[in-house]
Design a protein around this nucleic acid. Structure first.
Lengths: 336, 336
DNA sequence: TTGTACGCGTTATCAC
DNA sequence: GTGATAACGCGTACAA
């Protein structure tokens, strides 16, 4: 492999001049730069990133940390697109993207200190679901910049995060259903153990209040995120004396069961019932009928989290902040 | 950050002794080792991986290369699990896993030579879908070990690859359906432009031949991988004078349309029709009814591809080979 | 069994 | 503007 010395020799200059040329130092004359670049191209010289990293004490690498053994860490389809966004941003910066598993134990050392102290990474992006209190402490103690994907409100300390605007998303869904002429909108999938779920419920209540619509407690249904619970919850709602005519599914897998229950009772969608589900992109367009969803720009979420991380890396004392990515309604066939 | 020098000083030995201790050189006495290890732990010393990489000329990193802009590159749900498998193997080796996008152009250099020549990676795993002829040439020219995920048979040169055993998978599906008492099995989703699809069809034909069942050309339906095509294809099959009583969906999204068509015509599943679909894990258990599938151990595929890659890295002249991962039938509700 | 001294390829520093 | 040289932190040939 050709190194800087050989380029210098070939170009008849010193290694410092070659280095300065590559790093576009203003103190090198244009003619020298041209000469050196010509030689670099001729010899197909590529700077050894490792050597550069050694002296600059930077790895030019950030890490996407996940709990890969935990399905919920990043939901599958999310992960790919988030990574896509992160990678896109890394490109501009000539950075590499590493992926690591939180649960990796290297010789009983934990992964974070390994990553950081062995100089493998300059910053970490991780899902808020794995960001426990002790992890925050460790990251802060060790002094590595990090950004959480998902709102980190339940964490006491200041943390930078990027999330989708769950609250506004649900508000949009309510307004949209009202515009389509639905009157009695229910919210299925309350789960107060999840921050994002709380936000979605808040959005639901907010929007109704805004439009002077009484919030009906029977219309707020607590249930887990699976089709069976969606099915049962909907069956119950159908027996309500004043049954709703629209459902917002606050979690993605629910909608499948909800739709099943409605169709089974002989009602039609979207005539008798309107359905809006959250971010169930994977199944939304596969179902019959295709489901109208509150869609999330997951790519953007990744891109913005990387952007935020680089700001932290470049100026170590940038303040922590939260960023909400806005959503939009994708109309499919479960609404008029 | 504490370095090897400080450890040496604290332990009252030379840096070489510390280095040898860490790398478990047999020439260091146990008592010295103990002394040094104690100091390493006390000071919480972590070797600087960059410096090590520089001197050994190794990056201790492999790269998972994808065409991230192309949905098909790795299908979404696949990707996560493949990566999981790769990561698991990297752990044992103290390697890091990088993820890069094939289409990343760094200052108009292509990503491969950048990765390799800047010493960022020692090996590459990539989906066969992006492994064009020129790419193979480039990888071989540059001399970087690589493994394809997906059978690389349509490529002329020798290439190491790992794939699922599509042919045997379909054979299993046929035998399974026959055992359940189905008589006339159709294969929907022929697509000769895809290697894996060809293999699946071969398996179908093989299994029938093996059991002395005449292959009925009407039962082999060419179509694209989407629910609409599945729907149309099934509608046509239902009009066949001797309609089948079981369907193997040779591609994943098809099954949704196939089931829709069957139910719409008033037939029942699994009584009138048995359905087995390929690797549609994401939707299989979300559908009503839940779909019996030929299941693929995608984690294993990742793990094995990493294993194969490390063999190539460690002995540069290991021979290229292909590895088929076996499948199994996961019984759900679309078969008796 | 352990220590000394050099080198990996680059950038920073200081001199000219 | 440019060059000589030290330094980054580690591994290893050679010496002891």
């Amino acid at each position: 492999m050709v190194n800087i010395k050989q380029v210098a020799k070939a170009a008849g200059v010193s290694t410092s001049t070659v280095s300065r040329t590559i790093n576009n130092s203003p103190s090198i004359s244009q003619s020298t730069k041209d000469k050196v670049w010509a030689e670099i191209k001729k010899l197909d010289y590529k700077p050894n990133n490792i050597a550069k990293a050694l002296i600059t004490n930077k790895s030019y690498t950030i890490t996407l940390l996940v709990d890969i053994d935990d399905e919920k860490s990043f939901q599958n389809p999310f992960f790919y697109e988030i990574m896509h966004g992160i990678e896109k941003f890394c490109q501009n910066k000539d950075f590499s993207l590493m992926v690591s598993n939180l649960n990796t134990k290297l010789k009983k050392q934990d992964i974070i200190s390994w990553l950081v102290n062995s100089k493998r990474t300059e910053g970490i992006i991780l899902p808020v679901s794995i960001l426990q209190k002790e992890l925050v402490k460790e990251l802060k103690d060790i002094g590595i910049p990090f950004v959480a994907v998902g709102e980190a409100n339940s964490i006491q300390e200041n943390v930078s995060w990027v999330d989708i605007d769950n609250q506004k998303g649900t508000e949009k869904a309510v307004y949209y259903l009202l515009e389509q002429g639905y009157k009695n909108i229910a919210f299925v999938g309350m789960d107060n153990s999840k921050d994002f779920s709380k936000k979605r419920l808040e959005g639901y209540i907010n929007a109704l209040t805004q439009r002077n619509i009484q919030v009906n407690d029977n219309y707020i249904v607590e249930c887990d995120n699976n089709k069976e619970d969606g099915y049962k919850s909907m069956k119950k709602l159908l027996q309500d004396e004043q049954r709703p005519d629209a459902i917002i599914c606050g979690n993605d897998s629910l909608s499948v069961g909800v739709i099943k229950a409605i169709l089974e009772e002989g009602y039609s969608i979207p005539e008798d019932f309107g359905i809006v589900s959250f971010d169930s992109r994977q199944i939304a367009s596969l179902m019959y009928p295709e489901i109208t969803t509150v869609d999330v720009d997951v790519f953007e979420m990744g891109y913005q989290s990387a952007k935020m991380l680089f700001e932290l890396i470049e100026s170590k004392h940038a303040t922590d902040q939260g960023l909400l990515i806005s959503t939009k309604i994708i109309e499919r066939n479960t609404t008029r």
